[in-house]
Design a protein around this nucleic acid. Structure first.
Lengths: 365, 365
DNA sequence: ATTAGCACTCGAAAGATAAGAGTGCCAGCA
DNA sequence: TGCTGGCACTCTTATCTTTCGAGTGCTAAT
């Protein structure tokens, strides 16, 4: 890991950026012309040869140009590359496309994912992990003798509901009683606290012999358990096929299959951020076999209330790290901001809702 | 369109089924051996030649086997093929995997789509079109001075909610009044009936100067408009890459891109069912350019309350029509049944909810 | 240290050859 | 009249060879 000379760094950078752009091994001649330094190709050749010996580059065959190794990419990502500034159009597009926080965070995340995929031209993934949640408030709405609605307001601010049909009749009075007692017992407690015993206790206290309590408790438990299980999604999977390294359908298929299983995505934990906002996993640095010759760039976003998540893209190791890092970073920041807005002060969402004409908002599912 | 002899039908069927299985042009020799009729390959050759002249088959090159034309597939689908019976495992798998109607129809559809993709090995699409809906009942839940929840019970039985944060304080009394008046004005009417005038009227009647009414009306309108805009989704898109006809990444990319835009899927209307439960669109019968050399098989399902939708798969024209038709038909029927259950009689869902342990249901997103 | 020159290597593209599958047609046979 | 075996012909695909060219490493000269 000896320090590289400035010139070597410059050459390595040029090789990598050229390779990223062209997808083809780059040779000394091209570098002599394009890389800013004014030396002959022979000089560059000797430098290249040393960079190869150091493990930053390699040759596909004896007589081809150089290609970056994982080590090369790593150095590039850590020290060499500099994130380009986004153009005015790009920042504007991001700000515009992130969508209205009022429409709920799931939809926002969806939008952000699609945006990331579109702007980077790589498949984008979004993961959203939530800490264990609790019920802040529970309501039962009596509809008719056979029907009521359960409404849960969660600590995180999300609202969940369920329509319950009963195979028998109940009186409004019972529902109201159940509501009161359930509120007292199921709110502000964790999933584990709602055990059989507690449910039994509620049942007894309102003299429920028809299993109403079980239904309500069941929905509470289901909701809480679903909440702290991270949601993950991919958009733009087809974009992989544009990359020359995925011309082989078998390769593309394997990766796309892997990505389309949400369970795999959840595994992408953001272990050691190193204080960076962006984390890059290059080729074999990935644990999953299917990602071994791809790279993943992840940006962390955070949405107040301790909730946080990832937005990232997947592509070949020959990925445009600097450009993607810049965009993802900006998108993640925007997402954090927007989600914080939606959870906290309500003015923006409130204002917008009145200004737009919601009835006209069709399209786009 | 002259009537074909029994033998010609048998040969055509054999050609198509063999081609479906092997993806390669089928020749006379193979047919002489495999197709049940005991004639020589020369005889088959002359029959093939006539079938070719009639437009049911074609040859990729002078000296290759025969491949079905669209006309050939059409005849096969309309008259020749017979749906195989599903095996016990298959029917059981479908019944088991369709999921619990209690978890909501969106999730059920998702499950059904994934199931269809897995069982047919083609990408599956689900479209769910809903007739204009109305609000059956509206509730406002007062949480605190700055917060309330809007809960809408729709005619279709689905429940929608929204948490509203206010940048100012309101009293519980006002919310209650708004609830009553809004119920009277926004329920059982169509989207169009809720016009500016009516909103103004509600505002005046409760003396709302802060735009609360607009928020509620906005949510109602948004919900109604979202509801009758069909939801569409694809699962298992990557499966395309397994088919030999999509080895060309450009082709696969074009189709996958097309499928990943929900707007395109909604376009697949189920115009003329011919009383059939299954509709097959072969190659150029598709309107969309991107589907011109693929086939689509659609099954209609229906979920009571006039709501209906489609579940189907997309694949090459060389698709296993009979097997897929059988499976889709069964899945669609199961879906219809399950969704009808969830809307109507509640016993099954209710029973299940109590029997399972909801707290343990983690995984699977 | 840098450069020009040169022989060498090796992969990719182009061309040539061989193999094989399938056809169409014809003459002979029930 | 319908079926069959035989045979010449066609055309693709696979394989092998050849050629071409880009890029390297080395060396001698500046």
């Amino acid at each position: 890991m000896a320090k590289l000379s400035e010139r070597k760094k410059k050459i390595l950078t040029a090789v990598i950026e050229e390779y990223i752009a062209s997808a083809e091994p780059v040779g000394s001649k091209l570098l002599a012309e394009k890389a800013g330094l004014h030396v002959s190709s022979a000089t560059i050749r000797s430098e290249l040869s040393e960079l190869t010996a150091l493990g930053y580059l390699e040759q596909p065959h004896t007589s081809a140009g150089r290609v970056p190794t994982v080590l090369g990419y790593r150095l590039y990502v850590n020290e060499l590359m500099q994130r380009p500034d986004l153009s005015r159009e790009e920042t504007e597009r991001i700000n515009r496309s992130l969508g209205d926080p009022a429409q709920g965070q799931e939809r926002m995340l969806d939008h952000a994912g699609r945006l990331a995929a579109d702007m980077t031209d790589y498949p984008a993934l979004t993961v959203c992990s939530q800490p264990p949640d609790t019920v802040r408030r529970l309501d039962l709405i009596y509809v008719d003798a056979n029907t009521f609605i359960i409404v849960l307001l969660l600590g995180s601010g999300s609202v969940q509901n369920k329509l319950v049909h009963l195979p028998f009749s109940v009186g409004e009075e019972l529902i109201r009683k159940l509501c009161t007692v359930a509120n007292a017992n199921f709110c502000a407690v964790t999933e584990d606290d709602i055990d059989a015993e507690r449910i039994r206790a509620v049942e007894r206290s309102i003299d429920d012999r028809m299993g109403l309590t079980a239904v309500v408790a069941g929905f509470v438990l289901e909701t809480l358990s679903r909440c702290h299980c991270a949601r993950a999604a991919v958009s733009g999977g087809a974009k992989l096929l544009r990359q020359p390294e995925f011309q082989d359908p078998a390769k593309a298929h394997s990766l796309m299959d892997y990505l389309s299983d949400a369970a795999n995505l959840r595994g992408l934990s953001f272990t050691d951020g190193n204080g960076q906002d962006i984390r890059v996993l290059i080729g074999p640095e990935n644990i999953a076999e299917e990602l071994r010759d791809s790279s993943v760039i992840l940006a962390k976003y955070d949405a107040g209330d301790g909730m946080q998540g990832l937005i990232g893209v997947v592509g070949p190791t020959r990925m445009d790290y600097s450009r993607v890092a810049a965009k993802l970073s900006y998108i993640a920041a925007g997402l954090s901001r927007a989600l914080a807005d939606s959870a906290g002060a309500a003015l923006p969402g409130f204002g917008k809702l009145m200004l737009t004409e919601p009835g006209k908002r069709k399209g786009q599912g």
